[in-house]
Write a protein that binds this DNA or RNA. Sequence first.
DNA 1: AAATTTATGTCAGTCATGTTGACATATCTT
DNA 2: AAGATATGTCAACATGACTGACATAAATTT
Lengths: 182, 182
Amino acid sequence: MTDINFSGPAGAPDSKGVEGAGAHSRDLRWDIIELLFFAYRDFVGDADHELEAFGFGRAHHRVMHFVHRYPGLKVADLLDVLRITKQSLGRVLKQLLDEGYIVQKTGNNDRRQRLLYATAKGEALVGKLAGLQTDRINRAVADIDPAGVETVRQFLRAMIDRDDPDKVLETIFGSGSKKPRE
Amino acid sequence: MTDINFSGPAGAPDSKGVEGAGAHSRDLRWDIIELLFFAYRDFVGDADHELEAFGFGRAHHRVMHFVHRYPGLKVADLLDVLRITKQSLGRVLKQLLDEGYIVQKTGNNDRRQRLLYATAKGEALVGKLAGLQTDRINRAVADIDPAGVETVRQFLRAMIDRDDPDKVLETIFGSGSKKPRE
DNA sequence: AAATTTATGTCAGTCATGTTGACATATCTT
DNA sequence: AAGATATGTCAACATGACTGACATAAATTT
């Protein structure tokens, strides 16, 4: 008969969790873990809602995003970035090609390669989605000064694995350092 | 010998995209959009890897996390937080109950309710996963001073929708203000 | 030139996790 | 007693992952 209807037990989240903890509490960062969950949920939710109107899903968005941002991306590079199998990519890529959001061009150095480019139609879609997400980001940084925004960028960059970077990550972090320590 | 055509076209990402853009460029925040994608991918990747050993997926992790953090959570509240259907929750919750990671207790005010609690076994799992993610967060904030970390928290909080908050979000943001502005 | 490797595409089947719709049961509210 | 609410469950389906096998064209190696 524990009454507890939610209000009592946990209550307000603490920055460095301790709970009834005995030995190995280690100051887990529950608050940031949770904030990341909610922030990302709502962040991708912006795009998800709009994508429905096009009959597309998140997978299509991710492909469109990276093809737009890195024109001439090879299929193999895209597989590395998205970390999915070619069979999985194949389905969404085929749809995007068929419906004219992306075009392929044969590589000139290596004619086996299919370099990917967004069409005007594709640019429009990806721009619209980025606009929604940009609105949210702008709202979020409205009360943060430029140095603070740079701190946020630094945090996000430092959250990313840097061992075994794909081509896109090499571009984001100047391709010099592959060391996981900073 | 992949001779990387990749380098030419897009080149380094810019903080405020302009591209060949004509009219409506609006300073989209491509850089932060992309950093969020990679940061979250690697962040959840930590847990994903560990979960495989238990035969669980992300869905199980999310349930365990919130049940642990908010002991006595009602099934209905959990559905609100996760934003999934009861049928979808039912499957993973049943597994977690059957395998002894979570227990249910009948509400004493309302005996229809099933209040959820993590068992010691459940605490151990969720703590292990939070440990992995905490390690990543600690690495990420190692070069950021306390004020900067607070800025990161502020950013993440401000990224979250505050209209229509569920019970958990009401707890996170003191339940007073439902205004989307802070 | 022939053999092998690489880049890409595709068929077939499976799994995890989400969905809708319908319905059952216990319990609380009116 | 009747209705609403909290939960659970059955069945069917969609999306987006997965593995494994195989096909083709083009580059590379022998």
